[in-house]
């Protein structure tokens, strides 16, 4: 059986983390969840070889975070040849064109505006998971 990719959620909002866990739990999602509270934390995890060796990986990230924001993190991931193959999906509260344009300069796999309505949010998360689980990635 194919090993499901682990998902690194980079999110500083406690409630949003809880919310995502809720969606995972209620939908019997089997992917393992890892968490980082900001870009710096996320980057240090991604850069550790052991972390990478334990299976395929995907990143769901917020943009607006303390210490290192999502855009900076995305830039670093895309500039690192060892990391730039990882699918990165952005979930942001911002629907501002500039934020979108800025984010797309670093080639996110997808960009979602966080919906307040639970049904939309759940749909979005499940679509992302479906995509991640179907995408075949080289083992790191």
């Amino acid at each position: 059986m194919l090993k499901l990719p682990r998902i690194l959620v980079v999110e500083d909002d406690e409630i949003d983390i809880l919310n995502m866990e809720r969606v995972f739990r209620r939908n019997n999602v089997l992917n393992a969840l890892e968490f980082a509270r900001n870009g710096v934390e996320a980057l240090s995890k991604l850069e550790s070889v052991e972390f990478r060796r334990s299976g395929p990986l995907a990143v769901i990230m917020d943009l607006n975070m303390p210490k290192m924001g999502g855009l900076e993190l995305l830039r670093r991931i895309r500039q690192n040849p060892e990391l730039n193959g990882i699918p990165v999906v952005v979930f942001s509260t911002s629907d501002e064109a500039e934020d979108l344009a800025e984010a797309f300069r670093y080639h996110p796999t997808a960009y979602f505006v966080k919906a307040l309505a639970q049904e939309r949010f759940q749909e979005d998360i499940l679509a992302v998971l479906h995509f991640i689980n179907l995408s075949r990635q080289p083992r790191c």
């Binding site: 909002d13 409630i15 949003d16 809880l18 919310n19 809720r22 607006n64 509260t93 307040l116």
Partner: peptide, 20 residues
């Protein structure tokens, strides 16, 4: 857009958790 929306989201989501 961001700082006001975040607490709103939190309140919103919390209702869901309470229900759960």
């Amino acid at each position: 857009s961001h700082d006001l929306k975040s607490p709103l989201r939190a309140i919103f989501n919390l209702t869901l958790f309470i229900e759960d």
